[in-house]
C-alpha cells in the first residue's frame, strides 16, 4: 500500500487554498473524473505558479499550508488530484469536507505541525524534493540530491482503515 504514496513534491506556499482554485466550478459539469485532468489547480492564485508547468505534471505529492481545500464540498477536488496521480496532500490543516473526501477516496491528507512544515519548505530550496510516505511506520521521508529529512505523522485508526480499504464505500461494504 505504501508504495502508492510518494514521488516528486509540489510546494504551494499559501494558506486557505479553496476548492474553486483546485477545480473551477465550470468544470463540474463533467460527469467523468478523467475529464477533469487538464484543469488541476487552474485558478490557483500563487505568484509564479503555472498549472500547465512540467513541475505540475511531475507532481505526486502536494505540500501546502493551513486550511487547504476550504469552500465547496466538491469531491472533484480530490478527484482532479487522483487522475493526476497525486494521492497525498501534506498541510498544516485541512477543511473538514476536503479532508474527509480524500480519505473517502482512499487517499491521504496528512497534517504536519507548522515548524516541521517550515523545515519541509526549506528543503525545497535545495532542489526538487521527492517524498515517500511510509504508511506503516507513519513516516514522511523527504529528500533532495543532497539532503534528507524524516518526519513522523499521526493518522487515526479510521483514516488508516479507509486507506487500507481503498475508500469509504469499500469499508462500508465490509461492515454495514
Amino acid at each position: 500500500m505504501s508504495d502508492h504514496f510518494g514521488g516528486p513534491a509540489l510546494f504551494l506556499d499559501r494558506s486557505d487554498i479553496n476548492t474553486d482554485e483546485i477545480i473551477p466550478a465550470k468544470y463540474l459539469t463533467e460527469i467523468s473524473k478523467e475529464a477533469l485532468k487538464p484543469y488541476c489547480l487552474e485558478d490557483l492564485s500563487l505568484e509564479g505558479f503555472d498549472h500547465q508547468s512540467e513541475a505540475m505534471a511531475q507532481a505526486r505529492v502536494i505540500v501546502t499550508r493551513k486550511n487547504f481545500g476550504c469552500g465547496s464540498s466538491r469531491e472533484h477536488a480530490p478527484w482532479v488530484f487522483e487522475v493526476n496521480d497525486i494521492k497525498v496532500v501534506i498541510a498544516e490543516s485541512f477543511a473538514r469536507i476536503f479532508r474527509q473526501n480524500m480519505y473517502n477516496c482512499g487517499m491521504m491528507a496528512i497534517e504536519l505541525a507548522a515548524p516541521e512544515l517550515d523545515r519541509l519548505f526549506e528543503l525545497a530550496e535545495y532542489g526538487q524534493v521527492h517524498i515517500h510516505i511510509d504508511v506503516n511506520r507513519r513516516q514522511i521521508n523527504a529528500e533532495t540530491h543532497t539532503k534528507r529529512l524524516t518526519f513522523n505523522f499521526d493518522i487515526t485508526p479510521f483514516d488508516m482503515a479507509l486507506v487500507n480499504a481503498g475508500g469509504w464505500i469499500n469499508f462500508v461494504d465490509t461492515r454495514y
Binding site: R74, E75, P78, I97, Q100, N101
Partner: peptide
C-alpha cells in the same frame, strides 16, 4: 453533496455538506 447544507441548522437540525462518496453511501 453541497457545502451550504448547513443552512438547515436554522431549524435546529444537524445538517452537513459532504462529498460525492459520503453522498453515495448516504443514498445506499
Amino acid at each position: 453533496g453541497d457545502s451550504h447544507t448547513c443552512t438547515y441548522g436554522a431549524f435546529g437540525s444537524f445538517a452537513a455538506g459532504v462529498g460525492t462518496t459520503d453522498l453515495e453511501v448516504g443514498i445506499m
